[in-house]
């Protein structure tokens, strides 16, 4: 099955995506490939607003019927918003992983933007879809 890998996002090897905005914030979620592997997302545990995250820090948990998987922050920064709608409807991440299924927003740490993340082509290659 082909999965979507939008060109305008950055990707972590652990299957998170990051969309940087002009104001120094970035939105984070999990990729279409990840939601497809998990299939039935039944619960999402999000970080608290105000939490300072290091790049690669475990900060959220996504639970499918079968298992709980850790989510790692793709960049360093402070959590400034979380997607509260996932609490009532975690399946939004299955249905719209790059839109309504987003997890949290970060105010990126100075100088710590998206270094070390892959572009769409790199992620496609990493997941064997390239």
């Amino acid at each position: 099955m082909s999965t979507q890998i939008p060109e305008d996002l950055k990707y972590a090897a652990t299957h998170e995506w990051l969309r940087a905005a002009a104001d120094g914030t970035a939105t984070v979620g999990i990729t279409d490939h990840a939601q497809h592997e998990l299939t039935d997302i039944v619960f999402v545990e999000l970080p608290k607003i105000g939490r300072i995250l290091a790049a690669g820090e475990s900060c959220a948990v996504v639970e499918s019927v079968k298992s709980a998987s850790d989510i790692y922050s793709p960049a360093a920064g402070e959590v400034v918003a979380v997607n509260a709608a996932l609490s009532d409807n975690p399946a939004q991440t299955n249905n719209d992983p790059y839109g309504a299924g987003w997890f949290f927003k970060l105010r990126l740490a100075a100088g710590g933007s998206a270094n070390g993340l892959m572009d769409a082509a790199g992620y496609a290659k990493a997941t064997g879809k390239g």
């Binding site: 948990v61 709980a68 609490s87 009532d88």
Partner: peptide, 8 residues
């Protein structure tokens, strides 16, 4: 009994 992650 409420909104919760699945027990494992």
């Amino acid at each position: 009994t409420g909104k919760a992650p699945p027990p494992r």
